[in-house]
Write a protein that binds this DNA or RNA. Structure first.
Lengths: 198, 198
DNA sequence: GTCTATATGAAGATAGAC
DNA sequence: GTCTATCTTCATATAGAC
């Protein structure tokens, strides 16, 4: 309470990130001005530079935070049955992405607008996530539970299919999230040849 | 040959479209200026307005042309076996999209940058294409060749999976396009429960 | 059909007062 | 920490000469 009137660093910071996330997702990074973000937060444009050195860093930080959240949230146990691990991955991926559509959207629509160095870092994080699924598929193939000709292709195919849910699914529609997760799980398991085995 | 020196309407027009397509795909619509497009074509910015009323029309025309090309290129015969029709669709989709990566990229990355009216038109074309696949899946389910709980979801899942090929496949890599088409066909057929029947 | 020149506005980022 | 004011650059689009 000993604060001066205009001092709100602890609340303005998150508001800047939230506003940028929403506006970047809605209109695209290049189409959103710092003035728009400032107006959304309720400050003047110059004040934003207390929270980010520049617009590019704002984009990169949002994307990096999202990818790190994703990697930290994923928990897997290689000792479990491959089928169970795959089922867990499918439900996790759909659920996690459904909860943060704006971050997901930005994380793969705005890759073009990253500087080369920033792009490399985000791509490395994305690759690490893909490797999580590929490990499950490899273990499943080795155990005879799955049948895929090329685990790398299958990994990319499954992730593309699952991420696609975000483009159309909305809560309150014809289906619940659980129903969507169940049907995608069914399709994924069959696609990797895990339909009949253990 | 009776032309005046600076008269190139028949050649400049396509060059403008080609340059815009490539630059929009690479950097994004909002990040590309009319000056950049003009420089790429080899004219001054003002000259572009002989070929498009404004930048928005340029984007819309590129997207609409791509979607119309797609719909015109697809040929299907409802009297054929559903499995054969699905196989045709998978190979067609991957092949067609592989041949025009820039147009594909724009057609679903730049939807945000369309005016509401233009967006509605492009969405209608996209929906018409999705319906082509859903018709195959519905016929296959009715004939007992496929087993899917919800044909709309399966349609979106398959298209997302197939379109994802464009994000990683490059000619000259580890696999040929035909090999990729074959493996995706295998995964798609199994995903829709067409593995054992037919 | 293309040019040069320009109208008009907005962008990212910084300086210095409070 | 935020404000106002500003620097500098760039944007879309148009006008009129050739």
């Amino acid at each position: 309470m000993a604060r001066t009137a205009g001092s709100h660093s602890d609340i303005t910071g998150p508001k800047v990130r939230d506003a940028a996330l929403r506006l970047f997702a809605r209109h695209g990074y290049a189409a959103v001005s710092m003035r728009q973000i400032a107006a959304d937060v309720g400050v003047q444009a110059g004040a934003l530079y207390n929270y980010t050195p520049d617009k590019q860093s704002l984009l990169f930080d949002l994307m990096a935070a999202h990818m790190c959240d994703l990697l930290e949230a994923w928990v897997d146990d290689p000792k479990d049955d491959p089928r169970a691990r795959l089922a867990h991955f499918v439900r996790f991926h759909i659920g996690f992405h459904h909860e943060r559509p704006d971050a997901v959207f930005i994380a793969y629509m705005e890759l073009r607008n990253l500087t080369p160095n920033n792009f490399t870092q985000i791509e490395a994080l994305r690759r690490r996530y893909e490797d999580k699924l590929e490990a499950i598929l490899c273990d499943g193939v080795a155990a005879g539970a799955f049948d895929v000709a090329d685990t790398k292709i299958a990994t990319l195919a499954v992730i593309a299919m699952l991420t696609g849910v975000n483009t159309w699914f909305r809560t309150g529609g014809r289906l619940t999230l659980a129903q969507v997760q169940a049907q995608y799980l069914d399709m994924v398991v069959r696609a990797v040849g895990g339909g009949q085995a253990g």
